[in-house]
């Protein structure tokens, strides 16, 4: 079923986004890029149905799973208990998880390769491991669509790779629809089929990654110089974007070993 957003608009006092239309098919990955405070999280919440749209409509097959930007864990729950909470929708207000809920939760841990953490406390895990637990929790709801709010932002490069691999396998191997926001254009270039650029106040672009992710578009989006870099690694051609933060003399000095 995927995600269909048609002419959607939402505002607090000013429009966070307006006249926004996009379509992500099952098995596809879409990335949302945009500066802070331009409506990325707001859009995800609207797709979830947590914020009521002012105009337009959102369609998705059943309730999407959601991975928040960061989990502020006040209580030191065990990993399995945390993942079980993904079953909340199915368990009911007066129920408790049954054997089948445990089986689903363990299966989700298996799928992400973190079954060995089952009985650890969430608070004792590293940032990357914790992010995987949150993805497992979202999957435990049985969703076919998953929304992730900057899933790799607070992670080191190795763990970013782990999360990106996970998203890739969810879409390619399990046919899920993946929509995630990010601050890294390279996450979109390496992974996403579609990209949405959000500039705020109703200005946005959506389309295939190759068409949308250009130096010019990113320059406009972030308001700083962005350069596309192409190189080969292990025999395959890769493309990424690098922000030029703008101290050219210093960069030259560093390359000469002066600083």
């Amino acid at each position: 079923m995927g995600i269909s957003i048609y002419k959607a608009g939402f505002r607090y006092t000013e429009w966070a986004f307006r006249d926004l239309t996009l379509r992500v098919e099952p098995g596809e990955i879409a990335a949302i890029l945009g500066p802070n405070g331009r409506g990325k999280t707001t859009l995800l919440k609207a797709v979830l149905g947590l914020l009521p749209l002012e105009e337009g409509s959102v369609e998705h097959g059943g309730n999407p799973g959601y991975v928040p930007q960061s989990a502020q864990t006040v209580f030191a729950y065990k990993v399995i208990d945390m993942v079980l909470m993904g079953r909340a929708r199915h368990v009911g207000a007066f129920g408790s998880p049954r054997r089948e809920d445990y089986e689903i939760a363990r299966h989700c841990l298996d799928r992400l390769g973190i079954r060995r953490f089952e009985n650890r406390l969430v608070t004792r895990l590293s940032g990357g491991e914790r992010q995987l637990v949150l993805i497992a929790r979202a999957l435990a709801s049985g969703c076919r669509t998953i929304l992730l709010d900057e899933p790799a932002s607070a992670l080191d490069f190795r763990n970013q790779q782990v999360i990106l691999d996970t998203l890739r396998s969810l879409a390619r191997e399990h046919g899920m629809t993946v929509l995630f926001s990010t601050h890294y254009p390279q996450h979109a270039t390496c992974l996403a089929d579609k990209v949405l650029l959000m500039q705020g106040a109703g200005s946005h672009q959506f389309g295939d990654t190759a068409q949308i992710l250009t130096e010019e578009n990113l320059r406009q989006l972030y308001g700083i110089e962005m350069r596309s870099v192409e190189f080969t690694h292990n025999g395959s051609a890769l493309r990424t974007f690098v922000p030029a933060f703008g101290f050219p003399d210093r960069d030259v000095e560093i390359s000469r070993g002066v600083v």
């Binding site: 947590l50 959601y66 006040v74 909470m85 993904g86 909340a88 929708r89 007066f94 408790s96 998880p97």
Partner: peptide
């Protein structure tokens, strides 16, 4: 006691609990 699991979910905070569908 009946709501013991629901209290777990609520202890994640309003936003997270809301996204889990309660």
């Amino acid at each position: 006691y009946l709501m013991r699991f629901r209290i777990n979910v609520m202890s994640l905070g309003d936003e997270d609990a809301g996204t889990l569908g309660i």
